[in-house]
């Protein structure tokens, strides 16, 4: 399975989430590699761990303000910490579901969790460069980080 195809599946998954659940499309920025340092995480991060033919992590990280506006767009008035965690968890679930559907023979998408920055130390596969895909929605910026070993 090519990296391009795999990353494409995750990007489409996030874009589709914005189109359907939030009902306002997001734009995909120019992807780049996190070479010198680890990708910077925002306030809330949803994480999907992938194991199998390739190991790695897929993260969706977004600032609190963006998640609040997303919830408002979804007609939700509860903007509590737990609810925001649930929202990034839901996005992680979507990523996980799409990964399972597309890579069912190659990978087991076993763990998914939502973390608040600093809660859980993130472990990237050794020697792999995370691909960072900026996600622009309204005036906010989120990031999708895909890091799979080769």
């Amino acid at each position: 399975m090519s990296t391009e195809f795999e990353v494409g599946v995750f990007v489409n998954s996030v874009m589709h989430y914005f189109e359907t659940a939030v009902q306002q499309p997001a734009a995909c920025g120019i992807p780049h590699l996190a070479l010198r340092q680890r990708p910077q995480l925002a306030d809330y991060t949803g994480m999907v761990r992938i194991a199998g033919q390739r190991d790695g992590v897929v993260l969706f990280t977004a600032p609190r303000s963006m998640l609040c506006v997303m919830l408002m767009c979804m007609q939700d008035t509860d903007l509590s910490h737990e609810h925001l965690r649930e929202l990034v968890g839901e996005i992680a679930n979507t990523l996980s579901g799409d990964a399972q559907r597309n890579f069912r023979h190659q990978y087991s998408v076993s763990v998914r969790s939502q973390v608040h920055e600093g809660d859980i130390p993130l472990v990237y596969p050794a020697g792999a460069h995370p691909i960072v895909i900026p996600i622009a929605w309204r005036s906010y910026r989120a990031r999708l980080v895909v890091c799979l070993d080769s």
Binding site: E4, V11, C28, P31, P134
Partner: peptide, 18 residues
Amino acid sequence: LSGNDFLPAIVRLDELIS
């Protein structure tokens, strides 16, 4: 062009670096 179009380039760049 869109950001998505750059994905193949960045994947190949990663391959080159590796």
